[in-house]
């Protein structure tokens, strides 16, 4: 069997380790930029973060090496990660519209979209109506729980 190059041996384990190394480098750069770790013999605000960063490098490199020794290869199954990406996207939209259009409308849109995403059976008009009904009930119940029972103020919307 032909020997694979390091690049070919990159799988999800080693890829995540590489991402961690990259993020860690940004963190370390920011630490060095912020202040000296030791000044006049005194430990400063970046000393401890720099130590943590060095330890993270060591652990991430160990994981990277273990990753390239694995037999598995990098593969993406869009069918598997498609839904999580959709959930992340929907949640991001929800965060962005939450304050401006208020709790009720934003939450109804968010929950309804999630309902369809987690739908077990499709093709029935009845199901769609049921989803809308359940959405309204969930949004109303959580409103009652937070605002009425626990006295938490939820936004009513800036555009209205």
């Amino acid at each position: 069997m032909a020997k694979r190059s390091v690049l070919e041996r990159i799988n999800s384990t080693s890829l995540l380790a590489l991402v961690l190394i990259l993020v860690n480098s940004i963190y370390l750069f920011e630490a060095i930029k912020t202040a000296e770790p030791i000044k006049n013999g005194e430990v400063g605000i970046t000393f401890f973060p720099i130590v943590a960063s060095i330890l993270l490098y060591i652990a991430a490199i160990i994981i990277f090496i273990a990753g390239i020794k694995e037999k598995s290869v990098l593969s993406f199954q869009l069918s598997r990660i498609g839904k999580p990406i959709m959930v992340i996207f929907l949640t991001l939209i929800y965060v962005l519209i939450f304050k401006s259009i208020g709790y009720f409308i934003s939450s109804i849109i968010y929950v309804l979209c999630l309902m369809f995403l987690f739908e077990e059976e499709s093709g029935f008009k009845k199901k769609k109506l049921l989803n809308i009904l359940f959405t309204v009930i969930i949004v109303a119940l959580i409103y009652i729980l937070y605002q009425k029972i626990f006295g938490v103020r939820l936004p009513i919307g800036e555009v209205f």
Partner: peptide, 17 residues
């Protein structure tokens, strides 16, 4: 399942706020 996880999502995000 859809009721369960939609509710969890809403409680979680409103909780974050």
């Amino acid at each position: 399942r859809k009721i369960l996880y939609s509710s969890i999502a809403l409680v979680a995000m409103v909780g974050g706020y």
